[in-house]
Design a protein around this nucleic acid. Structure first.
Length: 573
DNA sequence: GCCGTTTTCGGCCCGACTGTTTTCAGTCG
């Protein structure tokens, strides 16, 4: 059992303990333990076998024993008994706004409610009002929350939210009363999906700015409105929330409302350790208020280098900042070219020349064309005659567009047994090969991992495309052991794709950090099927930043000579 | 359940909000 699975179980134990109304601090100890395990730099298994778990802050005798049991046997007696003592699905009730562990416990014990459906029914029967700590309002809130869950549980792609967020930001900044303003929340942290657009602004006329925001043309409905906080639904359906504060409070409010929740908690804990109290209103040393003009100041007073918003996920960034070891994150301007581009030879909308011309217009120094391979018949995968034709056209375009290097490649399906889609001789005719899974998604994890590892070991393979196959907001990826894939990448020199399509953003940023630590090279690929999608590469940059990547970790930040040399040398192996 | 240049016992991040209370518990971000 790996550290993420262990952390997941510790976290669930915390939730179950809260519902069982055990000591709340005991539950917190499990949450802290989960976090500590997730942030481990060292191999969990060695810590267990060398009996050193208790050296880690947040893990004492009891947790150490439980973690060992999980790692060694893959099971935990305590967890199983705890789970069996409560009905399955009870934790699902926590998703209802207004319900926490205590109320869930009451609902279960008094009414026997343990699922959303039962809860909905109990509300209709007017059963909640009689419960201690509940009342008429709670019941109607719960009913509304269930409706809400059913209707509006939708989240949005980062890419679609970002454009709208920036438009709102620009509008707020243009208001004469606005002194400063910024995106906040998960959209500022570049989360792969977001549920709403958070904004924070500073000015003297709090009321006026809020009113102005609520009256913007893209606002369809004002959902909540009071002194300094305005929640609206935009025409597109997405919600946007603006908070306006005084100029002095702005840096603290921005920091607070940027989150993440975990980062805030850890930052406050860190501040407390330094003798400060931190909240969205200020930074205090006892009664004395410290004056900070910006987020940079706040972090500095706390002995930390500035932590870019993308990194504020409570994954070791505070510790790294305290040691001055935060990465120097990649930026849009570091991108020199783009691989994994489709054309009308297969399922792309634009022609080869149109894609090349657009890439040149964007100032890219190279482009890597990779249409689908022959067994991807649904995507008009290329038969050998078309490959020859495309390669001839590429040769001609190289003459016509000397300002941009064009690499000829293919996105080869990884077949069920892990073999590739053409004979070696054909594969060798490309400058590069992206290997991707497009079929047989439902294999068991071990088999899928073996399949992909076999493909990665093929000498013609340059990159592994969308490593987990997930489609955000639509389907989970196939089951695969990403750690093994990364280890294989390290061993074979295969580049791991960060597929920058807004619906994929795959490999997930949580794994990118591991890739970086292993020294695995990452390519930020737009997987473009039309000219506009070449720009998607920049959404990938946001996610790469979230994964702690620097310019040097990213293949397509290299200049064209380096790329040419790299690809030539790989072919010689 | 964990932890200690404030503590080996008595704390554990902070503040706002809500609805239920009659001084506060629970939830949220």
């Amino acid at each position: 059992m790996n550290k993420h699975e262990v952390a997941e179980i510790l976290r669930e134990i915390g939730l179950l303990l809260e519902i069982k109304e055990d000591n709340p601090f005991k539950a917190r100890a499990y949450y802290n333990g989960a976090r500590a395990v997730e942030l481990l730099q060292e191999d969990l298994r060695s810590l267990v076998s060398e009996n050193r778990l208790q050296d880690i802050k947040g893990i004492g005798k009891a947790l150490s024993e439980k973690i060992s049991e999980l790692v060694l046997t893959g099971d935990l007696e305590y967890y199983r008994r705890l789970k069996a003592s409560l009905p399955e699905g009870l934790t699902g009730l926590l998703k209802v706004k207004g319900l926490g562990p205590k109320k869930v416990k009451t609902l279960y014990e008094e009414l026997g409610v343990s699922s959303l459906r039962e809860l909905e029914y109990a509300c209709k029967e007017n059963r909640l009002v009689e419960l201690r700590g509940f009342g008429g309002k709670t019941q109607s809130e719960v009913m509304a929350a269930i409706d809400y869950l059913k209707k509006f549980q939708d989240r949005y792609y980062y890419a679609e939210a970002l454009g709208q967020g920036l438009a709102l930001l620009e509008a707020i900044q243009s208001h004469p009363g606005t002194k400063e303003a910024s995106l906040a929340g998960s959209i500022r942290r570049a989360g792969e999906t977001v549920k709403d657009i958070d904004l924070v602004a500073a000015g003297d006329d709090l009321e006026g700015i809020g009113r102005y925001f609520a009256a913007l043309p893209q606002v369809q409905e004002v959902l909540e409105r009071d002194g300094n906080h305005t929640l609206v639904r935009l025409e597109t359906g997405i919600r946007a929330k603006l908070r306006v504060v005084g100029t002095k409070e702005y840096p603290y409010a921005l920091c607070h409302f940027t989150g993440s929740k975990g980062h805030n908690a850890s930052l406050r804990q860190w501040a407390r350790g330094k003798g400060y109290g931190l909240s969205e209103h200020g930074l205090f040393a006892g009664e004395k208020r410290i004056d900070c003009r910006s987020e940079v100041d706040i972090y500095q007073v706390l002995g930390l280098t500035f932590i870019p918003p993308e990194l504020r996920e409570d994954r070791g960034e505070i510790e790294a900042a305290s040691r001055g070891q935060l990465p120097r994150l990649i930026e849009n301007s570091d991108i020199k070219g783009a691989f994994h581009v489709h054309t009308s030879y297969s399922d792309g909308v634009n022609t080869l020349e149109e894609m090349v011309a657009e890439a040149a217009r964007l100032g890219l120094r190279y482009i890597g064309i990779s249409d689908h391979s022959q067994s991807a018949y649904y995507a008009l995968g290329l038969k050998e005659d078309k490959i020859i034709k495309q390669q001839e056209e590429i040769a001609a375009l190289r003459e016509k567009y000397p300002q941009i290097a064009i690499f000829s490649g293919i996105e080869s399906d990884i077949k069920a047994d892990g073999s590739l889609d053409y004979p070696d001789k054909v594969l060798e005719s490309f400058d590069f090969v992206v290997a991707s899974v497009h079929s047989h998604f439902k294999m068991p994890e071990e088999e899928m991992t073996r399949r992909i590892v076999r493909a990665m070991r093929h000498p013609a393979v340059t990159m592994l495309g969308h490593p987990t196959g997930r489609l955000l907001l639509a389907r989970d990826g196939y089951k695969v052991n990403v750690e093994t894939l990364l280890a294989t990448a390290r061993e074979t020199g295969v580049i791991i794709e960060l597929n920058a399509s807004p619906a994929r953003l795959d490999l997930d940023w949580r794994h990118l950090k591991t890739a970086r630590e292993l020294g695995v090279m990452v390519a930020i690929n737009p997987d473009a099927h039309r000219v506009e999608e070449l720009n998607d590469v920049f959404y990938g940059v946001h996610v790469a930043r979230k994964g702690w990547l620097e310019k040097k970790d990213v293949f397509n930040c290299r200049d064209v000579q380096e790329i040419t040399r790299f690809l030539a040398e790989r072919k010689k192996r």
